[in-house]
Simulated assay, not measured.
Amino acid sequence: MSVCPKCHYQRTHKDAQVHPDLCPACGIAINKWRARTPTDAEPATGPTAPAATHNLSSRLREHFMWVPEPSPTDNLWGRALVSGLLGLWGLWFVVHGVDWEVIGGSFMHNINLPFHEFGHVLFMPFGRFMTILGGSLFQVMLPLILLCAFSFQQRDNHAASVMLWWCGQSLVDLAPYIADAPYRGLPLVGGAGEESHDWGNLLTQLGWLDQAQTLARASFGLGAVVMAASLWWAFCLLRKRHRLNHES
């Protein structure tokens, strides 16, 4: 027995003579250690966790990069056009920065607004703070929920990438609202007063009102990164789909 089964110390001939059943490095009784482990090769808590983590990440990557087999109804260029237009639209948001007139006047703001308002109702049972936060929270959560539905249920990863773009745009959409927290000057739904300003109330409760601009920039920056990630995901899927079409 030249290697310790616990610490993998390389035993010498002298070690075997002086300590025939003890490891001079970690001090275990080798025969007893081997008797209580499931296998002679490795301890019961051997390097299985890293392998399991690796397997999980490999499975997730395989899942999110899955594309269907080529078919006559496979509209590759239509999907590419959608991703290209989303890329240009996202760039338009990024170039203009945290600008309420650009973001609040966009078509996407009109899409996000009803879900934002529904979020307040949805989170109402969880108290006043969550009721206020729920609008912004649900606005960002909904695209992620749809992403999972498209990817895991419909097996359409390209549609899921579009939902990821929407999630990023929702974060961008929130940035002017957060930035307006100290001023409460933005027009609100139904002409509600200053007391109904979500982020003005949230940051006041948290004592973070002076951090409004930093949080707004963080929301905008994160949204831009998420939109870029969605476009990269779509590009990888389209490239893989194109390669499969070419091979077939």
Rank of each mutant, 00 (worst) to 15 (best):
S2R: 12
V3T: 12
C4S: 08
H8F: 12
H8P: 03
T12G: 09
T12Q: 11
K14F: 14
K14G: 06
A16Q: 12
V18T: 13
D21W: 06
L22Y: 12
C23Q: 08
A25K: 12
I30N: 04
I30Y: 00
N31M: 10
A35D: 14
A35S: 15
T37A: 15
T39A: 14
D40Y: 14
P47N: 11
A52N: 08
T53R: 02
T53D: 02
T53L: 14
S57L: 14
L60D: 09
L60W: 11
H63Y: 07
H63Q: 07
F64P: 10
W66E: 13
W66R: 12
W66K: 08
E69S: 11
W77M: 09
G78S: 07
A80G: 11
V82G: 10
S83P: 02
S83H: 06
W89S: 08
L91P: 03
W92E: 01
H96G: 06
G97L: 05
D99Y: 10
I103V: 15
I103N: 04
F107T: 11
I111Q: 00
I111M: 05
N112D: 08
G119Q: 05
V121N: 04
L122T: 04
F123W: 09
M124G: 00
M124A: 08
P125H: 04
G127T: 11
R128M: 02
F129W: 08
M130Y: 09
I132T: 09
L133D: 02
L133H: 00
G135I: 02
G135C: 02
Q139Y: 00
V140P: 01
V140W: 00
L142N: 01
I145E: 00
I145K: 03
F150D: 07
Q154L: 11
A159I: 05
S170M: 07
S170A: 13
D173P: 05
D173T: 03
L174K: 03
L174H: 01
A175R: 05
P176L: 01
Y183V: 07
R184K: 12
G185S: 10
L186M: 07
L186W: 01
L186V: 08
P187G: 08
L188R: 15
V189Q: 14
G191I: 03
A192M: 14
E194Q: 11
D198P: 08
G200H: 06
T204H: 14
L206T: 15
G207K: 15
G207W: 15
L209K: 15
Q213W: 12
A216G: 08
R217I: 03
A218N: 09
S219Y: 04
S219H: 07
L222K: 03
G223W: 10
A224M: 04
A229H: 00
S230N: 02
S230W: 02
A234C: 01
K240P: 05
R243D: 12
N245S: 09
E247A: 11
E247N: 09
